[in-house]
């Protein structure tokens, strides 16, 4: 039933973020120039993906609002902690629901984009393009999701934690934008600038599984730290 609670808690924010992500991407796709066959090329899709990264990051920050510390500020943490479930279980369900909704926020705009863009007679290529971009978005985004989770375990207040998260995300984006650190930047990974050819929009090289795994490992570490903090905290 913790899933039910997490869904009720986040569904409004999820719907708002979903409408924003799908709406923005659809609008951008519609406004792009089209080839002779009436479809948008892969370069166009890749460009719209960069805009999706921005809105998706905002959406995930919104989705990860809440948690025990936020409930403590509102007074309901006592009820949650009196339930026969561990703090790890509470956090795991919240994170998984956040992750599933984040996947939805990444996939739904791409479905809309593919439908609106057409496929220039190459449906498989377009689908692969979508899959790769979603992989990159979720791989790098997992770090942002768990970082927001971590901040929600450190900063009390319903709106303080997401506001701080956005501030830190902007700071990180700026810090990692330098040439030396760009390889470690989750933002650069999410946009896929290093992995796609700017002329034809095709993947230039193998699928970057290793960096994706690195980011997932970093996300797992952030999750573990968050759980440790919550386990030790007095409510």
């Amino acid at each position: 039933m913790l899933w039910y609670k997490a869904w009720l808690e986040t569904r409004m924010r999820f719907c708002i973020a979903l409408v924003l992500c799908v709406g923005l991407c659809s609008e951008l796709i519609i406004s792009l120039p089209r080839s002779g066959s009436g479809s948008v090329d892969l370069v166009g899709l890749h460009g719209v993906h960069s805009a999706l990264v921005f809105v998706w990051t905002l959406g995930v920050t919104l989705l990860m609002m809440g948690g025990l510390l936020s409930e403590r500020a509102g007074g309901s943490s006592s009820f949650t902690l009196s339930l026969p479930v561990s703090r790890f279980h509470l956090m795991a369900v919240r994170t998984l629901v956040g992750a599933i909704e984040s996947i939805g926020l990444a996939a739904a705009p791409w479905v809309a984009m593919l439908i609106l863009a057409g496929h220039n007679g190459e449906p498989r290529r377009y689908l692969t393009q979508a899959g790769l971009h979603i992989l990159l978005l979720l791989g790098g985004g997992s770090v942002l999701l768990t970082m927001t989770l971590l901040l929600s375990t450190l900063i009390e207040g319903e709106y303080t934690a997401p506001t701080a998260s956005l501030g830190i995300i902007i700071l990180l984006a700026y810090t990692f934008s330098g040439n030396d650190l760009v390889a470690y930047s989750p933002f650069a990974f999410m946009t896929g600038l290093r992995y796609f050819n700017r002329r034809d929009g095709a993947l230039s090289g193998p699928v970057p599984w290793i960096p994706a795994l690195y980011f997932l490992a970093a996300a797992a570490c952030l999750f573990a730290v968050s759980v440790t903090i919550i386990r030790r905290r007095d409510f």
Binding site: K5, L8, E9, G74, G75, S76, S78, F79, S82
Partner: peptide
């Protein structure tokens, strides 16, 4: 154990 807290706060969104 059943517990009713001092604040009686539950989930506002439910």
């Amino acid at each position: 154990i059943a517990y009713v807290s001092e604040s009686k706060q539950l989930y506002d969104y439910m």
